[in-house]
Design a protein around this nucleic acid. Sequence first.
RNA 1: GGUUCCGUAGCUCAGCUGGAUAGAGCAACUGCCUUCUAAGCAGUAGGUCGCGCGUUCGAAUCGCGCCGGAAUCACCA
Length: 602
Amino acid sequence: MLFELQLKKLVQDLFPQLFNKEVDEKQLLFQPTRKEFEGDITLVVFNLAKQAGLSPDDTGKKIGDALVSEGTLVSGFNVIKGFLNISIHNNLFLNILRDKINSSTTHQSISNQSTSGGPVLVEYSSPNTNKPLHLGHIRNNLLGYSVCQILQADGNNVVKVNIVNDRGIHICKSMLAWQKYGSGETPESTGLKGDHLVGKYYVEFDKHYREEVKQLEASGWSREEAEKKAPLLAEAQNMLRKWEEGDPEIMKLWETMNKWVYAGFEVTYKRLGVDFDKIYYESQTYLLGKSIVEEGLKKDILYKKNDGSVWIDLRADGLDEKVLLRSDGTSVYMTQDLGTAVMRYEEYQFSKLIYVVGNEQDYHFKVLFLILKKLGYEWADLLYHLSYNMVDLPSGKMKSREGTVVDADELIEDMVNEAAKLTRELGKLDDFESAEAKHLFEMLGLGALKYFILKVDPEKRMLFNPDESIDFNGNTGPFIQYTHARIRSVLRKAESMPAFKTYKDADVSQYSKLEAKEKEMVRILLKLDGVIHEAADRFSPALIANYAYELAKSFNQFYHDHPIIDPEHSETSKFRLNLCSYCAAMIHKSTQMLGIGVPEKM
RNA sequence: GGUUCCGUAGCUCAGCUGGAUAGAGCAACUGCCUUCUAAGCAGUAGGUCGCGCGUUCGAAUCGCGCCGGAAUCACCA
């Protein structure tokens, strides 16, 4: 909090003179003053009153008086029910604001915590290549990307990495179905996006597979047996084995279909505005994983069962036994994650590796980190699972088999169309060229979607109702974007006026009468660095989203109450223009951390 | 059953290491566009913070016990 440190020190120094007792720094509790009271920062005096041997009110008054007569920091105070509300000299706020404005135009990055050691790696997205992205993936991608932006803004060197699960039984299922029922379809021949085409055959596989299971059940098998015995599954497993052997025909099919999927993903990523510095492929890391397992066997950290499968026993750590290699020698998810982690450390010597993965895999990562540690990799302590909760529909969990998934591409398209429709309804299209308009709709639709998702704390599950479109009013992305456009519009006007063209030369610290709404805005503007730091610390874009909203809200209140451009009051206008300009810059900065763009007009 | 997470207004969500009368938005109702963009501003209404006990000057926040929901505990990923 602003001025907290100075005040803390001051009160600590004054306390013994006032009450003949020392006070511990930890007892000095400051909080922002509540809106309904006068003041900037509040000291809670209950615990101090005990120390002082006076009533809370008297204690507060004595401290307040002493602070005011000290002179440099505090301009006034009031005590209400044990709370000492302190007002800070306005010019101190304005001095900081002036410095901020100056430094923001000269050099960009603010905080520069020299991170010792390597970069921070953030893994996110991690798609399977057998089906298109859905709403759950959107949350993952937006979260991952945003966390990277926030960490960067907080002074970290960030490397965005992706791991593509490009091999395994799930892909074989799509491949097999395409072979059997695809009659040579391609993205070109069907006009379908590649990932959707491949996804179609994944569904196709499941359809036929379930039919087989049903038939087997009808002929007397139990459900469980039928599921294991179905010929299609055996075929898929056979295909996986052939893949691991490098069968040329299978490899070719695999490469072709994966290529289709990548082309499809690329489109979705681009539209979402996310990207990666480095992409890993499971097909290139699983062998390293296997060799790590071999080593573990040699060191007797792992053991082999009679059927040849390899395990680790984690029961002493309160977990279970975990398989690391199947009896036929093929690798499992855990195997390749071991390989990927080691490969990354060798490549980057990261100071931290963050996995953005859903909370359904909490257990998996607990085990992964523990295994690495047991295998002797000290850097296992640098790994962190950023676990986020599911996106639910009103009907409950999304299930691809029941067709209740919300497709990513469709959702984005809907949002953009909604933005276009709304803009037309509001009659705001007149000034726009069609290319410009299209760009704007994209920005607004995605802004609404991204904000909707990122404003929720990652740990909380969130609800998405496809029947109710995401709002464009109130606490939303477009509200923030609108606020930015509003400010830019005022600034454009000012820049076209000779009297205000050079408003940036004015010194904001010389402004004498700070209105309440202005001060509120300044206060919010000045806390951004702190918010960024906390958001980085907690890996929480939600904090940034809420901040951006708070700032935009505060601007709109100010905008409603006070004229900005007023030739009669040139000094005031210049101050306000600078305040607005900086506000727009900070809105831009915070939305940028959320991956949301802001328009010049809308 | 074991482990972990969640439960705040009709709905979607904030609420920092315990602090003042628990905050926004949506939906409902009411005002405000001849002044820089009304995707805005202001107001009304809406709460036993799942329930109970405990710690404390003080609990939505911390502890314990219930109730309700979710995830996970696979030779799936």
